[in-house]
């Protein structure tokens, strides 16, 4: 075996078939028990320089020392457990915000409340051969955002910093 644990435990007559990823830095030299993100089976592993020196061995009834940080199921359309699913995957605290999206964040206003063109789709606005001028005619191109901005202004939600 290696630094994934492909869990083959039979659950409800079917193999669990979940892949638990053992990320390289955390587990490069590591000994202890870890749960399968899907079925909760606890495995003992001992890794030395990235090698699975012992394990994975099932340890029924033991509390796991840690959890994988990510797991997915290739036979289930790669459905996955992302970091920090309670009781299944290890949290990942060192992130830029509390919740990461992993997809484009649709942003219409900067943190001080002024319009910023961070959402899609944008209406066509280019001239010849993709040319643009030096003005974003927001009132014409995105009237709904312009209106929202006016309301923000009136409500005093637009700040200098």
């Amino acid at each position: 075996m290696c630094d994934i644990i492909w869990c083959k435990k039979e659950v409800n007559g079917k193999p669990c078939d979940t892949i638990n990823y053992l990320d390289p830095y955390y587990f490069w030299n590591w000994e202890g028990t870890i749960n399968c993100a899907e079925c909760g089976t606890v495995y003992y592993i001992h890794m030395i320089q990235g090698f699975m020196y012992r394990g994975p061995e099932e340890r029924d009834g033991e509390k796991p020392d840690t959890s994988p940080i990510y797991a997915d199921k290739p036979y289930d359309g790669y459905s996955s457990y992302r970091p920090g699913v309670n009781g299944r995957t290890r949290p990942f605290q060192c992130t830029p915000r509390k919740e990461l999206l992993g997809v484009a964040d649709m942003v219409k206003f900067s943190i001080r409340g002024r319009p910023v063109r961070g959402w899609r789709p944008q209406p066509p606005s280019a001239g010849l051969a993709g040319s643009h001028g030096f003005k974003w005619d927001i009132a014409k191109l995105s009237p709904e955002v312009w209106e929202e901005y006016q309301k923000k202004l009136a409500a005093g939600e637009v700040k200098d910093w």
Binding site: Y21, D23, Y70, R82, P83
Partner: peptide, 22 residues
């Protein structure tokens, strides 16, 4: 291409890459 930059995508890719590097 862009979706591969999500944190969980990095974890998955590098775990398997490191398995080869090992």
């Amino acid at each position: 291409m862009a979706a591969r930059n999500a944190l969980h995508a990095l974890i998955k890719t590098y775990t398997l890459t490191a398995r080869w590097l090992r």
